[in-house]
Simulated scan of single mutants.
Amino acid sequence: MKIIFLPGLDGTGLLFDRLIEQFPESWNYNVVSYNSIKAESYLGQAKEIAARINDKDIFVVAESYSGRVAYELYHLLSERVKGIVFLASFISRPSQIARLAKFLPVFLLKPNFLTKLILYLFGFNLSGDKGMVIKVFDSLQKSDKLKLRSRLYNIATMPKAARTIECPVTYIRPSTDFLVSSSAVKLLAPKSSKFNLVEVNGGHFIAQSNPAECAQIIRNAINHLNT
C-alpha cells in the first residue's frame, strides 16, 4: 500500500519533512507538490493526482488545504483508497472569514515582523519552535504564486460536500485551531461513515509542531486496517 501525502496551502510538500522522519524508511510513500500539478480546481487536481497513481491500494494523508482534494480523490479511486487522515483539514469552507481568502494579497505571505507574528499566533498558537514559522514562509516562497492564488480562491469559493466517504477516516484536530472552525469539522464527520476524531495539543500547523504524536496516530490508523 502506498501512502500519499497531500500538502497544505503552501503546496510544496516540504513541510511534511518532520512528520515523515517519524516513519520507517521502508514505507512506500509519495509526497505531492502542487507546483507540478497543472489543474487549478479541487476536482482537476484530484484527477491529475489520480492519473499518476498506479498502486492498487493507497492511504491518503491530507493536510489543511488538501482535505477537499482527498475527498475528490476518494470518489475517483473509490475502494482503492483504504483510509484517509485529515490533518487540521476540511472538505467544505473552513470558516466564514475564509470567504475573503481570494482577496488576500500574495505579498502578505512574505516574511516580515508582522506576518511572522501573525503566523506564530494563528498557525502555532504562540507555542513551539519559532523556527518553524520561518520554514513555513520558506515553503510559501517556493510555491508557484499563480497556483497559490488559485488555491486561495478554491478555499474561498468551496461548496459544501455532498457525498459520503465510505473508507475509515481519522481527523487530527489541533486543540487550538484558529484557521479551521469546529463547524467545518462537524460538516466532515457526517460525510464519513467511519469517523474517528483525535485531538492533539497545538495550533493549526500540528504536523509541524507535534510530528511525533501525529505520526503515531497515522500509524495507528494504518495498522487498524489490518486488524
Rank of each mutant, 00 (worst) to 15 (best):
M1F: 11
K2F: 09
F5Q: 03
P7G: 12
G8N: 11
T12W: 11
G13F: 08
G13M: 10
F16D: 07
D17Y: 14
E21T: 10
Q22N: 15
F23T: 08
S26M: 10
W27M: 13
V31E: 09
V31A: 11
Y34V: 11
Y34Q: 13
Y34N: 12
S36T: 14
I37C: 12
E40R: 15
A46E: 12
A50R: 14
N54G: 15
D55S: 15
R68H: 10
L73F: 08
L73Y: 07
Y74E: 03
Y74N: 03
L77D: 00
S78Q: 13
S78F: 03
V81T: 04
V81L: 09
I84S: 03
I84C: 04
I84R: 05
V85T: 06
F90I: 02
F90S: 01
I91Y: 02
I91S: 03
S92C: 07
S92M: 04
S92Y: 04
S95F: 04
Q96L: 07
I97M: 08
I97L: 10
R99C: 02
A101V: 00
F103G: 00
P105A: 04
P105S: 04
P105G: 03
V106W: 05
L108D: 00
P111Q: 10
N112P: 05
F113D: 07
L114N: 04
K116H: 10
Y120F: 15
L121T: 12
G123R: 10
F124I: 03
L126H: 05
D129R: 05
D129W: 01
M132L: 14
L140I: 07
L140H: 05
K142H: 09
D144C: 06
K147I: 00
L148W: 01
Y153P: 00
I155K: 10
I155Y: 09
T157V: 09
M158P: 00
P159L: 01
P159I: 00
K160M: 01
A161F: 06
T164N: 05
I165W: 00
E166V: 00
C167F: 01
V169N: 01
T170V: 11
R173N: 03
F178S: 02
S182N: 11
A184C: 02
A184L: 04
K186C: 01
P190E: 06
S193D: 01
K194M: 06
K194Y: 09
F195G: 08
N196R: 13
L197I: 14
L197S: 14
V200T: 12
G203W: 13
F205N: 14
S209A: 15
S209I: 07
A212R: 14
A215D: 10
A215E: 12
I218F: 12
I222M: 13
N223D: 13
H224C: 06
L225A: 09
T227A: 07
